[in-house]
Amino acid sequence: MYRDPKASEEYHYAIVWLPIVDRSIAWDDGYQQKFEQLQAMMPWYTVQHPTIIEPAVVKYIKEVWKFSKKAILVPVDPQGRILNQNAFHMLWIWKNLAFPFTAEREAALWKAESWRLELLVDGIDATILEWMKEERFVCLYGGEDIEWIRQFTNSAKAVARAAQINLGMAYVGKNNAKEKLGKISSIIIQENLSHTLADSTAVWFFWARLESMLYSKLQHGATVENDRILKEVTTVLSFDGSEQGWAIFWRGTTHEMARAKGKVATDCMVEFEKWKDDAYQNGFVPGLNNYLERVRTPDHCNRLILPGIHGPIPETVACADCGRVMEMFFLYRCCPE
């Protein structure tokens, strides 16, 4: 995930890993083995051993760079000046295009962006990229209710046949549900319900990028009322925060998109007869959007869970449906899988 087709040398920067550990815990062979395994996996420079890092440096990193537990990426220019307190979100979203990882570069990249399928999936999955090149209709869906998945995928495939469209469907999982995802993906593959992302790392990266987009947009003062990308990112993350399945339909590389969750998503597939004429006349995605607008109700309850966001917790987040400020709760969770 850290590699890029263009070598970082072309951008004149190098990455150095500073492993910060809790020195109150005795360093034993188990920790040493884990450290060496991580070190061997990394394609960049690393400090030879955590104990080499002076306590004063650790204190500085925690107090000035605000390091806690989650990894941060702090770019420093040749003069030793900090360019960004944490550029991880930029790296996740744009990879080496984010160089030199400054706020100005970030703003320029966002100015050139739009809400599109390429931004959402990046290069995470080769099959989806191929569908996009072929200008196929693409449906990304998620959740962990296998019965909903069965009903939705079978209904969607039936609609695709009836509408005579070439539809590719891909399961993108659910954030922070690693063990369950393995079982669900196996069932999806065995029953030939749809395509799935390659592995748990690809699923993790998909959601990590979305969280990074949210953090980045909020840092630049965007709101769901004035920023389409933030609105859509917040919607997808709130879909994931619900206990329901969800789906987004795209038409190839165009900006045509429709989204729904839970029973609404399955019902609009089952009830295709009610909007098929609209789909034939105006196009599949516009027809679907028109039908969703007709059946939409003002009632909603959206949850946004941000367990892995790289940066400070946003003070306020607006609901993507109604624009009101969402209530903030603290969640303590123990979910052994």
Rank of each mutant, 00 (worst) to 15 (best):
E273C: 01
G262H: 05
E36A: 11
E315G: 02
H220E: 12
N289G: 12
L18D: 02
D240L: 05
I128F: 01
I305E: 13
H300T: 06
A156S: 11
K183V: 15
K6D: 10
K34F: 04
T266K: 07
K70R: 11
M169Q: 12
N154M: 14
A112C: 00
P78E: 04
L218P: 12
L167A: 04
L288Q: 08
E118P: 00
R303V: 10
T201C: 02
C301P: 00
V224R: 07
Y332C: 02
K95R: 14
W204I: 06
N302C: 15
C319K: 12
R105W: 14
N282G: 06
K95A: 09
V47G: 08
L331P: 00
Y171N: 02
D278P: 00
G30R: 03
T223F: 09
I188N: 02
L97D: 15
I61M: 08
E63D: 15
P307C: 01
M269W: 02
I309T: 10
V325I: 15
L230R: 01
L109C: 04
T253K: 14
L292K: 11
K274M: 13
K66L: 14
I25E: 15
Q37V: 12
G143S: 09
W131R: 01
E134P: 00
V74H: 01
D278K: 05
W115S: 08
A87T: 06
H49Q: 06
E36K: 12
M328G: 01
P78Q: 07
K157D: 10
V233K: 05
A87S: 13
M42P: 00
W275C: 04
Y2H: 06
N166D: 13
E271Q: 14
P5S: 12
E113N: 10
D22Q: 11
I146G: 05
D145H: 04
A163T: 01
K66E: 14
V138Y: 10
G143E: 12
I53D: 03
P100Y: 11
W110F: 15
D227T: 02
D145G: 02
C301F: 08
R116F: 00
G252D: 06
Q244W: 05
A260F: 04
E211Y: 08
K183A: 15
S194I: 07
A98E: 12
D29W: 01
V121M: 14
K178E: 15
L288G: 06
E9L: 09
K276I: 13
I20F: 04
E36M: 04
M90F: 12
P75E: 05
P43K: 06
K95Q: 14
A26V: 14
L230F: 06
A26Y: 12
G252I: 02
A71V: 09
K178N: 09
K133H: 12
A247L: 07
F329S: 08
V224F: 06
K111L: 11
F205P: 00
L73I: 13
W204G: 03
C335H: 08
